[in-house]
């Protein structure tokens, strides 16, 4: 790992100022960033820890919206009793990873096989930053890429609470990332289906399934749909065709378990 300076500001404003220097990088729980630094895939001049900022902590609930501070760890969300979101958080990585990893870090990283992006996209959540609010549909911009500008910090994520929701994950047992994961959410404005782990473009909605489920919210409703293997991830864990099949199977399971 190349060396770097380290700062741990206590306010968002100080963190934004610290990130203004060249090649500075935000550090949340570090469960992806630290392994990345070890492999010398990134060489920031400075790491700015976001874990000392009180404003990024905590979970609140009002008017049908659950707002989670960006530096909230997976274990805190898992323990909160927030339905399928807590189940999702409780199955990220392993216990030690859940004690450090944060929701903001996961979203800013936008790993194509991460769990949280599926829940954020399926519920149409809003990602709040130091500068603005970004709708989930506008946030994810291809793998490891988001709408965040250089130095922009996620402060919280606001989830509209679904009428029903379920996240089904087919786990890659070595990494415990999703080989494929599907989140189905029944929202006031209709059903939304978000798929992670499958596409080379990262998390995305399966709109055909949404249309079918809006007409008939049952696993049978998607029985006649097919998922194209074009553009799906191919690696030693699964072929595109295998992942395409998993998308459909997991969607049906998620609907059945909603």
């Amino acid at each position: 790992m190349h060396n770097f300076d380290f700062e741990k500001p206590s306010t968002v404003a100080d963190a934004v100022a610290a990130l203004a220097s060249e090649d500075a990088q935000a550090l949340a729980g570090g469960q992806t960033l630290i392994p990345t630094l070890k492999q010398r895939l990134a060489a920031p001049s400075k790491l700015v820890s976001l874990t000392g900022i009180a404003d990024l902590q905590g979970i609140s609930h009002s008017d049908g919206v659950l707002t989670i501070g960006a530096a909230t760890t997976h274990v805190e969300v898992a323990a909160g009793g927030y339905g399928s979101l807590s189940v999702l958080a409780g199955n990220i990585g392993d216990p030690a990873v859940r004690n450090r990893g944060t929701i903001g870090g996961s979203l800013a990283n936008n790993d194509p096989s991460a769990d949280y992006p599926a829940a954020v996209l399926a519920t149409g959540a809003t990602i709040n930053t130091n500068a603005r609010s970004i709708k989930a549909d506008d946030f994810f911009d291809g793998i490891f890429t988001t709408a965040l500008e250089e130095g922009e910090i996620i402060t919280s994520v606001a989830f509209p609470i679904p009428e029903a929701s379920c996240y089904e994950k087919f786990e890659q047992p070595a990494s415990r990332f999703a080989l494929v994961g599907v989140c189905v959410a029944k929202m006031a404005g209709g059903v939304r289906v978000a798929v992670t782990g499958a596409s080379e473009e990262g998390v995305h909605r399966w709109r055909e399934a949404e249309t079918a489920l809006n007409a008939n919210f049952s696993a049978d409703a998607i029985a006649d749909l097919s998922v194209s293997a074009d553009g799906l991830i191919s690696d030693l864990h699964g072929t595109p065709k295998y992942r395409a099949n998993l998308v459909k199977v997991l969607t049906a399971r998620a609907v059945a378990n909603c």
């Binding site: 380290f6 874990t51 216990p95 004690n99 450090r100």
Partner: peptide
């Protein structure tokens, strides 16, 4: 009090 991987946390973070 929380289980963490010592190889995936910076020493300065444990200050």
């Amino acid at each position: 009090g929380k289980l963490v991987k010592g190889c995936t946390m910076l020493a300065v973070e444990a200050d």
